[in-house]
Nucleic acid binder design. Structure first.
Lengths: 256, 256
DNA sequence: TATGGCTATATTGTAAACATTATATCCGCC
DNA sequence: GGCGGATATAATGTTTACAATATAGCCATA
């Protein structure tokens, strides 16, 4: 199998292209427009848990190729935002009731610690950022549901950012997204994600450097969110069914 | 080269293959042998930070195809265990000094909370698991470096498991791996990852249901680990250089 | 001898065709 | 008319070849 060697050569070498020795452009896949698009669609609840994410349709929607979409979906699946089922495709992740509770418990731990660190590290720039956000949240149009959802998520992210720990910040981002999915799955219809007055209170306590108060308010806020969701009684039968079939499948696999 | 369309059809339909309605086999990519292999190699420090992970070589080593390898590497990159640089390939992730500190800080937060929850939830089965692990760790051959490293990591994972929160458990797993990378990058040569007596102490306190004591011991243990690493003075010049070039690159991108 | 540019090689990235698996539709059968 | 099974369709998964990029080696030159 001889292959014709490509003799063509590009004589135009526009730029010398100074090469960085170790630190080449580490642009993450998180910046990918497909990933970002799906993430914002989820956090704004335009994509509901269980929604099918077909490769061809996404490729057409974003004007790109299937390969690109597959990479984005795999990444989202690694972060448990998307569920990939072999030979069936990708779906928006739908957490179980237990997982939803675990998500809130994890947020209680991480975000109370974040608030505490944020109070400790608070400086001028941080105060300015916090005030700016609180103003935006106060002024915004409450009828614009998508903007509301984005803003409420941003408050929690901002607190994590003020804590000054990038690892904690990543975790908070991930937990925010998974919270969106948990709430979307188990919410009582019509209620908002966050109570509207909680954020100004917490923000004020942080600005006042009242650490214990801020931590307490954050914990209370998260517990309040958690108490707003309920296991879906209506679909208990379905869950029971899937449990049964899973058991059958496992037995078939084990016993031959 | 026209190829005859395959007219063959499989008439043998061995099993009716009862289809599960929603809960098809959700086997995660985490169970993939390539992923597992790389992860254990890293946690056992056979793969050092910065090591090149060539696709062809891995494919040959695991006896699989490049696509499969690419999927595994992408997944590991999503979890910040591998760093992918466009057109250059995948490398074992090398955390920065700041990131290493953030990792330890995150572990302090999460693992102290995990210990606390583990004490609360401790039951007969949990006690048995804990005792079994402590015996294994006591008996094991301390000259077998790889077994030692695996066991010490497993203790922390076990505590997270006893806390009964799957989300926290995932996070602990991730933090353990990233700790391996942080220690491998910044350790003083020769020192072990964990002080050998810390785990039995913590385990005993958990078994005694001494919550405050166990939490304190865990925090102390993690702080001790953290104090064992030092920023690499020898490579400060390199870091300075990369910082300079990164700045130049950013300026070129913005201004040019 | 060291440096800069050029060429050759090796590696990664991408696209398209192909194969495989699930889903939906239809038809015969009871 | 409802049910089971086969077929058609549409989706996902995989292979292959190809293109683009970076690395290493080479030679000319100062």
């Amino acid at each position: 199998m001889k292959r014709t060697r490509p003799v063509k050569r590009k004589p135009k070498r526009s730029e010398p292209k100074l090469r960085e020795p170790e630190a080449a452009d580490p642009r993450s896949i998180d910046d990918d427009p497909v990933v970002q698009g799906i993430l914002t669609a989820i956090s704004q609840k335009r994509l509901k848990p269980g929604a099918k994410l077909g490769e061809d349709k996404l490729a057409a929607a974003f004007g790109t190729t299937r390969i690109h979409i597959r990479q984005a979906l795999s990444h989202l699946a690694s972060r448990k935002v998307v569920m990939q089922i072999p030979n069936r495709g990708a779906f928006v992740y739908r957490p179980s009731w237990e997982e939803a509770q675990d998500i809130f418990a994890a947020r209680r731990i991480i975000e109370t610690a974040a608030v505490s660190a944020a109070v400790d590290r608070l400086d001028k720039a941080g105060k300015a950022e916090l005030r700016a956000h609180m103003e935006r949240e106060a002024r915004h149009d409450r009828n614009d549901r998508w903007a509301s959802l984005s803003l409420t998520a941003e408050f929690h992210i901002l607190v994590a950012k003020l804590a000054g720990n990038r690892v904690l910040l990543e975790m908070s981002r991930e937990l925010m997204l998974r919270t969106s999915l948990a709430i979307a799955t188990f919410e009582q219809p019509g209620e908002p994600d966050c109570s509207p007055d909680a954020h100004p209170d917490i923000g004020a306590l942080i600005l006042a450097r009242d650490k214990a108060g801020a931590v307490h308010a954050m914990r209370h806020h998260i517990e309040e969110m958690e108490q707003r969701i309920r296991p879906k009684e209506g679909e208990d039968e379905v869950d029971e069914l899937t449990a049964i079939f899973q058991e059958i499948g496992a037995r078939a696999r084990a016993g031959g």
